[in-house]
Write a protein that binds this DNA or RNA. Structure first.
Lengths: 242, 242
DNA sequence: AAAATAGTGTCTATTAGACATTATTGG
DNA sequence: CCAATAATGTCTAATAGACACTATTTT
């Protein structure tokens, strides 16, 4: 609408929260959380987020949350996830939160938390299969369960649901890997996102046939077995798909 | 976040706009629009929308827009689409709009506009194929082009993009049909949404194999040819899929 | 009988899963 | 040579498109 009846009942607080997602080298889903230093949910863990400024788009607010709260600057895959507007999400005020999710290679996670004392890398436990959806739980690297603030257990769950669905038709696996990777590494990313193993042969065929990957000519050395060919993401191919 | 830094820069206006979608019997995409009676965009056509109330969830605001602005009450498929937060969407104020889309059988569109003088059923022209996305144009039933207010040409475009993608994995075609329908009618719905013809044989096979439709035993009479079997949507089957 | 759509059967091309086999490296 | 993974080849099952054919209704 944008006003026809001019009964502007009230002006809510609007925040942007970002679900940062990554995959650890041992194949588990990771997210980056910040510890709250005041009530409500003091000491609980929360998604990096900011209030939306007057002259700030939602995308800019998401980039600011990534930079100032999570310590992730520069080029990152970010996409809008969902907007949460339940009445009692925050026990003090009515707050509407526009959630985004970002896909970040593990290496950037590690350097980000090294610079940011209030941030932690958490493992995501997904207690449901496929895209059925639901809440998640998070653990720190010592396997201790972390308490999540607000409805952030639900927001992270929806982010996982989204990337599981999206993996089937969009080349988002590449966002979670460094520039060069083996096909087996890409497969591990897919398996971690989907939460189940996939067929190696058909995965290789599908990826090679898609034109999304191109051989770099280099190989992953230092292994005790035949070195795998290194590939890079062919950005040309995706843009032509629109 | 939901506040840690207590710099609440400003409190924006938040609205909910609803893209109502339907399919006409001749196979074109329809939407329901309301005419603006004041500036900006006076006399232009806009999506039904309301300001979000203090004690109103986003879903409740969408239901209120459907009921009070569009004249559609009762059970309707409604789902959140996207949240728009560009700085100059509305030339007066910074307004953040949470868009929803609703799928409504054509019959309910017709009774709604009959009761609502300010509303019109518009044909949607989609100038792009597949899910590449973009803006749309709208025409009234006399084929005259209608001017859309704000960024609503873009919002409707994203709604079309969404249902095109969703049709491939979710049973949303049924939301656009009355309780009983023939398989050919369901196919026409799919073709109208997708914007291209689809194979009759494989569509029938896929639908019958899916278990989503069940024969009612009745037939579509009054035709000048063999009457088609009438089916109904098997809700049991979808809920088990999650 | 003619016209028109409903509905069935069959062939083919594509794709994913399963599984076997060969290739290449370090130890 | 052995262990381990890379990479290829082949068979099968499932599915979508194409197309031919039969069925059923009204005029």
């Amino acid at each position: 609408m944008d006003s026809t009846t001019f009964t502007k009942n009230f002006l809510p607080d609007v925040t942007v929260d970002v679900v940062l997602l990554s995959i650890s080298s041992n194949g588990s889903l990771l997210t980056l959380l910040t510890q709250r230093d005041e009530d409500p949910f003091k000491n609980a863990w929360a998604l990096p987020g900011v209030f939306v400024g007057r002259n700030e788009t939602l995308e800019n607010a998401a980039a600011r949350a990534l930079r100032d709260k999570a310590g992730i600057a520069g080029d990152v895959f970010v996409e809008q996830l969902f907007t949460f507007g339940s009445l009692n999400r925050d026990p003090r005020d009515r707050i509407i939160s526009v959630a985004y999710y970002a896909l970040v290679p593990e290496g950037r996670f590690i350097t980000a938390v090294a610079r940011n004392a209030g941030a932690v890398i958490a493992h995501i436990d997904v207690p449901w299969t496929g895209v059925s959806g639901g809440t998640v739980q998070v653990r720190n690297e010592a396997d201790k369960k972390l308490k999540l603030a607000f409805d952030h257990d639900r927001i992270i769950g929806i982010a996982v649901q989204r990337i599981r669905g999206k993996l089937n038709y969009a080349p988002i696996g590449f966002e979670l890997l460094p520039d060069e990777f083996t096909l087996f590494e890409l497969q591990h990313i897919h398996e971690a996102v989907l939460g189940h193993n996939i067929n190696k042969d058909s995965f290789r065929r599908k990826m090679l046939a898609s034109g999304l990957v191109e051989e770099t000519g280099r190989r992953r050395g230092g292994t005790a077995y035949r070195p795998a060919a290194l590939y890079s993401f062919n950005k040309e191919e995706t843009t032509t798909h629109g």
